[in-house]
Design a protein around this nucleic acid. Structure first.
Lengths: 270, 270
DNA sequence: TTGCTCCTCACGTCACGTGAGGTGGC
DNA sequence: TTGCTCCTCACGTCACGTGAGGTGGC
């Protein structure tokens, strides 16, 4: 027969927990001294404690455990309980997996933006883009509507996204109302589905300029990059690409003065 | 300017929650009527509420959210918070994945045992075993030590296990002290590692008998199956297999009278 | 007066943990 | 007396939810 402290060491349950389980009727001591209130457990309670510990490890609520102990002594009869608990655990897993993927996408976006911030000189550079798989929605109307497109793509491809969203501008001029553009996001894999086109976007040489500030200011940077291209005698191909390295975030809208947008003008090669 | 009820509809936070967030200093009303105590929120609080909701969806504790709101307004500055939260979420995922795999293995074992119970007639039958991949530990000593072997294998191969544990008996006679046997578990995949041998166990024709009751009674069933084999003139090959369809469970020890053990005697084919 | 919205205050949830203040036996 | 184990009782945790009892304005 063991005192509560000894029984605690045997079962690896704290004294506080044992007292609580007593109160809840889960593990009652074999004998309680009426004078001192001391609890005493005999060895038959060790197995009982093990069962409780195992069921707690499976995160069964105490009420369920009490019910199980009252009715069963064989796992074969617990199938319903076990299946219900499995459902519950799977729900938790789905829940946390969703959070994980949201956190991952925020983190990778922000890391990307941070590394661009450290590398860029905010001057026009010439570089070569590699081809990439994208999910895209062709749209017509106002540019400000593009968020809906990005939203649809993000919901659809979730964890397969692998880079910042960007727009392809098919117009040669700036249009306020009836612009022709395509909301795109790089993805690792996926297939074309209802209205979202998945295809390989070719790479090639381009001139690029990272613009810092609100979207309304983009015109200034377009002036700079277009002048650069003209001075160099480059021929530019539509669609023009506008990559939203850092914009309104998933948590904060953020400060528009910190927004980063890369303008990419593809060069004609022939 | 909105009353708490209107603001509740806008933000999809309950009135109770809004009052609580006020108390915690997370979302303070724009104005509180001193006479009535009524809370009033203006539209600038909507964005704030959205931020709080997003951070709560990521399961940040309220204390963290309060700190974040006090210091930041841009996701780029939250990298540390986000990474810490990611760690936390991953820990939760690992935790629940462990529970899931334990539940799965208990469930599949019990389902297997249940279906055997329904099908078997507790008579000797002749059948053909299919080859299977197993993880095995060769042991020498007492049979009762085999639990340790099963434990090691189960810990090592966890979710790759795909059937009940069994013993291979290499002795031709019953030995108490110095038995030569091998603790085995069927697995889906895996490789030989320190002391655990992974190999393909060949199949073939056998006579089989499901024994119900404590292990001490196995002798009775051995007598029955051996007599059957002798009457039929079959030649038996070692190792003999003893499959523990239902024994002491992961939760309950269970009632030994309900234990199910299948004896399989492999037949010589030549 | 009725119905609606709002208020505060106290208590509950879940499975314990913390800590104060005290007892009993060596 | 000191040190150890044990006790009970009250309160805390975390993010709210429930419910009682009451006010204010239409």
């Amino acid at each position: 027969v063991y005192s509560i402290g000894e029984f605690s060491k045997i079962t690896r349950l704290t004294v506080k927990t044992l007292r609580f389980y007593h109160e809840q009727g889960l593990i009652t001591p074999s004998w309680v001294d009426e004078q001192t209130g001391y609890r005493y457990y005999d060895s038959s309670k060790i197995e009982l404690a093990r069962v409780v510990v195992r069921l707690r490890e499976l995160e069964f609520p105490l009420a369920d455990i009490a019910e199980i102990l009252r009715q069963y002594d064989d796992e074969g009869d617990l199938l319903e309980y076990l299946e219900r608990q499995r459902q519950f655990i799977e729900e938790r897993l789905r829940h946390y997996r969703r959070i994980e993927s949201t956190l991952d996408s925020i983190l990778s976006q922000q890391r990307e933006a941070r590394s661009v911030m450290q590398q860029t000189t905010f001057e026009v550079v010439e570089k070569s883009l590699t081809p990439q798989l994208i999910a895209a929605i062709r749209m017509r109307g106002k540019y400000s509507e593009c968020g809906k497109g990005f939203g649809r793509i993000a919901r659809h491809f979730g964890r397969h996204l692998c880079g910042p969203p960007f727009l392809l501008h098919y117009d040669c001029e700036y249009k306020e109302e009836d612009a022709d553009f395509e909301a795109c996001m790089p993805i690792r894999q996926g297939k074309t589905v209802d209205g979202i086109d998945v295809r390989n976007l070719p790479g090639g040489p381009c001139v690029s300029l990272v613009h810092q500030g609100p979207y309304d200011d983009l015109g200034r940077s377009y002036a700079v990059i277009l002048k650069y291209a003209r001075d160099k005698g480059y021929e530019i191909e539509v669609p023009t690409r506008e990559v939203y390295l850092k914009g309104p975030g998933m948590i904060f809208k953020g400060n528009p003065k910190k927004y980063l947008t890369e303008i990419q003008l593809m060069l004609r090669t022939s």
